[in-house]
Design a protein around this nucleic acid. Sequence first.
DNA 1: ACAACTCTTGCAAAGGATTGCATTGACCTC
DNA 2: GAGGTCAATGCAATCCTTTGCAAGAGTTGT
Lengths: 329, 329
Amino acid sequence: MRATIREVAREAGVSASTVSRALSTPEMVNAATRERVLRAAERLGYAPNRAARGLITGRTGNLGLIVPDLTNPFFPSVVKGVQAKAREADYAVFLADTDEDPAAEIGLVRVLAKQVDGLILCSPRAREEEIRELTEHTTLVMVNRRFGNLPSVVFDNAEGIRQAIAHLQALGHQRVAWVGGPRTSWSTRDRMRALRAATGAAGMELYVAGHFPPYFEGGVAAADLVIASGVTSVIAYNDVMALGLLSRLRDRGVDVPGDISVIGIDNIQMSAMSSPALTTVSLTKEQAGRAAVDLLLALLLQPDSVRNTRRELPAQLLVRGSTGVARTT
Amino acid sequence: MRATIREVAREAGVSASTVSRALSTPEMVNAATRERVLRAAERLGYAPNRAARGLITGRTGNLGLIVPDLTNPFFPSVVKGVQAKAREADYAVFLADTDEDPAAEIGLVRVLAKQVDGLILCSPRAREEEIRELTEHTTLVMVNRRFGNLPSVVFDNAEGIRQAIAHLQALGHQRVAWVGGPRTSWSTRDRMRALRAATGAAGMELYVAGHFPPYFEGGVAAADLVIASGVTSVIAYNDVMALGLLSRLRDRGVDVPGDISVIGIDNIQMSAMSSPALTTVSLTKEQAGRAAVDLLLALLLQPDSVRNTRRELPAQLLVRGSTGVARTT
DNA sequence: ACAACTCTTGCAAAGGATTGCATTGACCTC
DNA sequence: GAGGTCAATGCAATCCTTTGCAAGAGTTGT
C-alpha cells in the first residue's frame, strides 16, 4: 500500500540512501537534491516504516507511562503533560495502569520495556530492590519518587507542607492530624517527614491517623479517627482523600472549617467544586509530565547527561473555604 | 543484548524456522522438538523482536485509543477497560487526548494509524466526511457514536432517558430542562432525541437550554438559564456538567432537590460524593472499553465478521439525593 | 514393493530502512 | 598540472522474523 523509500528514490532519481539522508540528516545532502527528494516524498505521501527503522536503529520512537490508578484525577493531568510533550518530539506514548498493584507494576515494566525506548514510572509502588533490578535493563525516569541516582521529577513537598502549616498556625491551630496514603508510596513518606519537621518547628502537635487507601473511601475511613483525636485541623495525603474526609465530617455533623479545618494536596479540579471548596497544596501536574519526558529524552540522547538529575517542581498552598480560624474549645 | 531466534535455534539444535514455528504455530512441530525449543527459549530469556516481526507480518501488536479529554472522569474509566482487555490479548495501547479539538482528532488518527493495527475512537467530535475518509485507510471502532455501518459501542441512551423521565414524572415534575453538551458530540444529539421522545410520550414540557462545553463550567453557565426558565427539573449531558449545575444552583440559593431536581449521566465517582449526591444515569464505562477492544480484535481477525456490528450497552437510572418531589408553586 | 501421503524440518527469500565504506567529480594549492 | 581535500552520492550489508516451498523420512494402502 504505502510508498517505500525505493519508490521515492526512483521518483526523485536518486538512490534510497539519499532519500534516507534527505529526511533524517538533511545537512548531508545537496540543497537541490534534497528539495527534489522532499517533493517526491510529499507527492507519494511517504512516511518511513517505523518497524523497518526500528529494526536497524534499535529504537522504537515510543515511550511508556505507568500510573497506579487513572481514576485518581491527579494522574490524567500528568498523562496529559506527558502526551503533549512526547508528541512534540514525535514520540507516541503507551499507557498502562496498575490498579495500585506493585506486582502488576513490575510486570508491566517488563512487558512494555521491549516496545519502548524509555519508561516513565509515575508514583511507583514497587519495592526498591525490584526497581533497582529494572533499571539494569531499562531506561527509567520516575515521577513522585526519589530513588538512588535515577533521574526523577518530584514536587517540593517540604515547601508545600511548610506553607500549609504556617497557614494553620496563623489561624490559631495547635493540633493537626495527618491522614497518610499507601505505605508503598514514597510521597506519603516524604510528606510525613516534611510534616514532622514543620510541626516540630512550629511547636504544633501532630496526630498521625495512619495509612489509608488513596481513594475517597480512605478519607471517609480516616475521618472518625480524626474526629476522635480532638485535633482542630487535618492534612490529607491527597485531594481525593480530603474530599472523603469532608464528606464524612459533614455526615457526622462536624462543621468545616468551624470545627475542623481540612487541607488536601494535588489541587485536582474537583477540589474547587466541593463545598466548602478545599484548601490544598497545588501541584503543577502537567508540568511534571512534561519534565519527565524532557528528562527521559535527554537520557536517551546521552545517557550520562542527566544521571542523578532531580527536577523539583514547586508546591504552592491554595487557600479556599475548608480552612478557617481554629475553634477555641 | 537480547537473545535472537538464531541463538535459540543453536541452543536447541534446530533451525530458526523451527523455533519460530514452535512459538507461534506449536501444532506444526513435533512435541519433543517443541519442548526442547521452548526450554531453550526460556533459558535464554528469548522474546521475539516486535519490529522484525512487524516488518514481515505487517502487524504491530498495538492498538490506539483516542479520547477527547482525559480530565473528564468518564474517559479514564473507558481507558481502563480498554487497557485491561487489550493486555489480555497481548496488545499494548497507545493513548492520545485531543483536548476536545476535532482537528487534533483527525491528525492523531493519521499519526497513530501507522503504528497500530486498529484504533478506538471514543466520543469522536470530527465531522462525518472526515471520519469516512479515515475509515478508508484505517481499522476503526467507535465508542459513543454511531456512524454508517462502522462497528461501534454505544449506550442505550433511550432507555436511560426514559427511566429518568419516568422517575421525574413519578415525582410530579411537569417541566424539565435539557443542558446539552458540545454540538459536535453524537451523544448529545442522541440523548436529546431520546429526551424529546420521552417527554413527548409522558406529556411533559421540555426546555432546551442549549449546547455547553462538557466541563464543570459548562454546567455553571447553564444554571442561570435553567433557573430563569422556571422548570422544576433538569437533565444534563453528563455528570461533570450536572455537578457544575449543582454548584451554581447552591450559589444562587436554589435548593436541590427542593426547588429543582438535577439528573446527570455517566455515574462518575464524584457524582456520589457531591451533596446532595447526584441522581444519574449509570453507564458501564469499563465495559464499553472492553467491548470496543473485542470488536476491534474481531475486526482485525476477519474484517467482515463484525461489519455493521453495534454493541449496545445498558443504561440504568441511579436515584440519589438530587431528585425529589416537584415543588408545587 | 511402489505409489501416494503425511509429518517435520530446513532453506532462502522477503520485508523497508539505515549506515559504513567506496566512488566520483569538482575544486584548491603549490 | 599533479596531488590532495572535500562534498555528494551510491553500493551493499545488516537488523530479526516469518513463511512458501522443497526435501527427507516414515506410513499406509493396494
